[in-house]
Computed example of a mutant assay.
Amino acid sequence: MTGTIRVLLADDQHLVRAGFRSILEDEADITIVGEAADGAEAVAGARAHLPDVLLMDIRMPNVDGLEAARRIAADSALDGVKVVILTTFDLDDYIYGALRAGATGFLVKDTEPEELIRAVRVAARGDALISPQVTRRLIAEFAGRVGQPVPDPRLDELTSREREVMRLVAGGMTNDEIAARLVLSPATAKTHVSRIMTKLGVRDRSQLVVLAYESGMVSPGWLG
């Protein structure tokens, strides 16, 4: 990703939005293009501004963040919008649903400013799930809720190398980590991930994670 990162903020608390705006607007490569107080406004704002990243609280009045993420994922005109769900540990029950709804990743709501800035940049370039230390735990926890795996015929389109890369993505690894594990260049790892998403018809890495667990390609804790 090159140029300025366009961010839309969605939270029903004005002070939270103001705090995030203050932190992010100090960065030369980030600009805030709009704010929303509920999910319906977030979807409308995404359509109006086409942000690179939508930082969105999961609990909001009227339309919540989960439903807003579903609506955005279902709109092909918004394929470029990366939804980052703002969560707290006591809202873990929502996380697996958010992944299935199309969220790119998660950010703990009381995160440090440096982590917020880093997360926006990571999400904008589509390089990895947000906050790996959080998402890896959540993936393992919620993968156990999938139930009986259902094989997906789309996976038959993948080469053995692509299946290997997809399993590592499902383990929460970044492109750089995948490259190191498989002795590839980061660019080659990124190309593999992009081709996998194209073959499977998914919009981002989080959907690869969901598919890997639901199909039985991987199981909780396999990566160690």
Rank of each mutant, 00 (worst) to 15 (best):
A37W: 12
D38Y: 05
G39D: 01
A40I: 05
A40S: 09
A42F: 08
A42C: 06
A42L: 05
A44Q: 11
A44V: 00
G45W: 10
R47L: 08
H49P: 04
H49K: 13
P51A: 04
V53W: 13
L54P: 05
M56T: 06
M56W: 06
M56G: 02
D57E: 02
D57C: 03
I58R: 04
R59Q: 04
M60R: 00
P61M: 00
D64S: 00
G65I: 01
G65W: 03
L66W: 00
L66F: 02
A68M: 00
A69N: 09
A69G: 05
R70P: 02
R71L: 02
I72V: 13
A73F: 05
D75C: 02
D75P: 06
D75F: 03
A77M: 10
L78H: 05
G80V: 10
V84P: 08
I85F: 04
L86C: 01
F89P: 15
F89C: 14
D92L: 15
D92G: 15
D93I: 12
I95Q: 10
Y96D: 14
A98C: 08
A98R: 06
G102Y: 12
G102Q: 10
T104K: 12
G105E: 10
G105L: 07
G105T: 12
L107A: 04
V108I: 13
D110H: 09
T111M: 05
T111V: 14
P113R: 14
P113Y: 11
P113T: 11
P113H: 09
E114G: 15
E114V: 08
E115H: 08
I117M: 09
A119V: 07
V120P: 00
R121K: 08
R121A: 04
V122C: 05
A124D: 00
G126V: 06
A128D: 11
A128C: 05
A128P: 03
A128H: 08
L129I: 09
I130W: 01
P132W: 01
P132Q: 03
Q133E: 12
L138I: 14
L138T: 10
L138G: 03
I139C: 09
A140H: 12
G144T: 12
V146G: 07
V146Q: 11
G147Q: 11
Q148A: 14
P149G: 11
D152R: 06
D152E: 14
L155S: 12
E157C: 13
E157V: 15
L158N: 14
R161S: 15
